[in-house]
Design a binder for these strands. Structure first.
Lengths: 193, 193, 193, 193
DNA sequence: GATGAATGAGCCTTCATTCAT
DNA sequence: AATGAATGAAGGCTCATTCAT
C-alpha cells in the first residue's frame, strides 16, 4: 500500500497519481483507501509517517553503532542516517517534495512536517551542547540541519541521481573543520559573539 | 497575472489554484491564460521565470554594492540576495515548493530548475576559486549553496515566518570558519589536497 | 444508452449533442460514458455498431424468408432489409449522416464504415454471380448498392419522411431490367464483355 | 475564402475547422468571417452555394456540347457534369458530407440542399419525358438520380480515391440497357405498370 | 472597412468518494 | 470486511463572436 503510493508518486507525481492507480498496483480495491486511510490525503500522511519512521529508525541504528561519547562521530552518524539509501531513493525523494508542497495547505500534513523538522534540530543540538557553548551549538546545529536538507534537496533536484557520499563529505568536512577550530581557539571566538 | 498566480498559489496551493481563480483575480478572462501562457503549466513556468529573474537581479544588485575583490563580502552579498525580502515572501516560497514538486514531472519546468540550481553553484565557485584552491572551493561552494537552500527550506516550512537574518548568520559563520582556516595555514593545507 | 444517443443526435445533431444530454436522457451519470465507451467518439462507434448489427440482422431475416435459389427475390430481400422501418427511422438516418461526416476524420469510425460498405457489395455480388457472368454481376451489384445508398440518401435528405416503397420499386425495376435482358440474350451479350 | 474553407474542412473536418484556421489560410482576419458571412454557419452556406453553382455550370456546359435531341446523350452529359473532376475532388466531397449532416439541423442549409436535390431530379425527368411515358420517366429519373448520388457517395467514402469513370460506366450501362429495352418492347412493358 | 485581442460560455473528461452487494 | 460500479462536481481548454482601434 505505502510502497504502491511511493512507486506511483515516483512515476506520475502526486497530482498524477490517482487512487485507482495506487490501489490497482497494491492489488486492492479503490474503496479500501477511503475506508482505511480516509482518502487520498490520509494515504499521503500514512505514507510519510512510514517514511519518517524509517528515517528515525535509520538514524537510531547508526547512533547505536558509534561511541556514545564521540560527539563528532554521533553527528556524522545522524548525517549518514539521513542519507541512508532508503531515504535518498528516488521514489522517496519525490514523495518528500510532493509532501512539502502539500503540507503548506493541509494542517495534518503540516504538523507531521514540523515534528520531523524539529526532531532533527533538537537531536543535533543535544549532541553539540555537550562540547560547545550553547549559542555556538545552536548555530552549528542549525548549520548542519540546513546542510543536510540543502544537500539532500540539491541532490534530489539534480538529474544525476543521488550523490549521497559527496553530500556527506561536505558535511563531515564542515564538521571536522569547525570542531578542530573550536578546540584550538574556541574560547576566544565564542566570546566574540 | 504573475502576481495573481503567486497570490492564488499562496492561498490554496498549486493544485487548488484554478485558472478561473487566477484569471478572476487578475481581472482578465480565463481564455487569456491558455492563449498567452499555453495553459496552466505554462503560467507556472512564466511565474517562475519571473521569480528567477528577480532573484538574479536581486543578487546582481547586492554584488554591485560590494568591493569586487572582497570575496567573503561578495559571497555574503549573494547570500543576502537569496534572502531578499521578495524571495522569502510567503507566496514566493509556496510557489517554489509547488514548482519543485511539479518540476520532477514536467521537462520544461525541470530545465528551468536546473538552470537556476547550476547558476548559484557556479557563481559561488567562481568567487571562491579566487582565494581557495579549486578542490576546497568546490566543497565550500557546494556547502554554501546547500546552506542557502537548506536554511531557506527550513524557514519556508516553519510557521514562524522567515528568519532571514538568522539564516545569514549561520551561513556567515560557516563561511568565516573556512576562510579563517585558509588564512592561517592555507598554503600548507591546500597543498595537502 | 445507444437509444439515447440516437434520440439526442436526432434532436440536435452530433455536434449539438453533448455527453451531458445523452447521459441525462439515459438516466445515467456523465462519467459512465467515458468509462464504458471511451468518450463521445467511442459512443458514436458503439451506436453505429449497434445500428449496423441490426441492419445485418434485418437482412438475414429477410433472406431466410425467401427461396434460396431465386436470386432476384434474394436481392429484393436484401433491398427490403436495407429499407427496414428501423433503418429508415429519422433518428437512425441522421446518425448515419453524422457518422459519415465524422468517419472521414476518425480511423476507428472509418474502418467500421468500410466494413459495412464492402459487406453489402459482396453480398450482392455473391448472389448475382449465380446467374450473371462475373463482369456483368460486378456492374449490377455496384448499381444496386449505389441505388440503395442513393435512394436511402435522397429519402433521408428530403423532408417528406421516408418513402421506402418507392425506393424499392425503383430498385426492383432496375433489377428486372438487367435480369430480363439476361434471360433473353444473356449468353451472347455476356460473351461480348 | 471559399477555397480556404474547403481545404480546411478537407484537412480536419467541419468540426475540427475553426474560423481562425480558415481565416488564417485565406490571409484575412477572423473578424471578417462573422462580418461578411454571418458566422461559421454562414460561411458553410456560402461555400456550398459556390460548389452548387459550379456543379450547375458544369452540367450546363456538358449539355451545351451534346445534341439537344439525343436524350440518352443529354442524360449522360448530366451524369458527367456530376462527376466533373472538380465535384469529385476530395475536399469538395468531404464538405458535401459535412453539409448534409449539418443541413439536418440548420434550416438555411436545409433549403439549399433541397433545391439542389430537386433540380437534378427535375432535369432528368424533363429529358426523360421526351422519350418515355411519364410514369416510367419518373422511375428512371429517380433511378438515375439515386445512382448518381449513390455512386458518388460510395466513391466518396471509399479510400481508393474517386473512381468517377467506373461510376459513369455503371450509370451509362443502365441507361442504354433500359432505353434499348424500352425501344424494343416499351409499349407492352409500360402498360404493365 | 478591416483587424485581432479579448471574452466567457460550454464542452469533455477526470477522479475521489460512495454504497449496494 | 471488501469490492468496484456508479456518481457528479469541477477543471482546463477551445473557439465563435465581439468591439475598440
Amino acid at each position: 500500500m505505502i510502497e504502491s503510493t511511493l512507486l506511483t508518486i515516483d512515476e506520475v507525481g502526486l497530482q498524477g497519481a490517482t487512487v485507482a492507480m495506487i490501489s490497482k498496483r497494491a492489488g486492492v480495491s479503490v474503496g479500501i483507501i477511503s475506508h482505511y486511510f480516509n482518502g487520498k490525503c490520509g494515504l499521503l500522511e500514512a505514507t510519510m509517517r512510514s517514511v519518517l519512521k524509517e528515517l528515525a529508525e535509520s538514524i537510531r541504528q547508526r547512533l547505536r553503532e558509534v561511541d556514545s561519547d564521540d560527539v563528532e562521530e554521533r553527528i556524522k552518524a545522524i548525517v549518514r542516517g539521513n542519507f541512508d539509501p532508503q531515504q535518498i531513493d528516488r521514489k522517496v525523494v519525490k514523495t518528500w517534495l510532493a509532501f512539502w508542497a502539500q503540507a503548506m495547505h493541509e494542517p495534518s500534513l503540516y504538523r507531521l512536517q514540523r515534528v520531523n523538522e524539529k526532531r532533527l534540530l533538537s537531536q543535533l543540538r543535544y549532541e553539540l551542547t555537550r562540547i560547545l557553548p550553547r549559542p555556538k551549538a545552536e548555530i552549528v546545529a542549525a548549520g548542519v540541519a540546513a546542510l543536510i536538507d540543502g544537500m539532500w534537496l540539491r541532490a534530489a533536484l539534480s538529474s544525476d541521481g543521488f550523490n549521497g557520499e559527496k553530500a556527506q563529505e561536505v558535511i563531515s568536512n564542515y564538521l571536522s573543520t569547525y570542531l578542530s577550530i573550536d578546540k584550538k581557539g574556541g574560547g576566544v571566538r565564542s566570546d566574540e559573539r
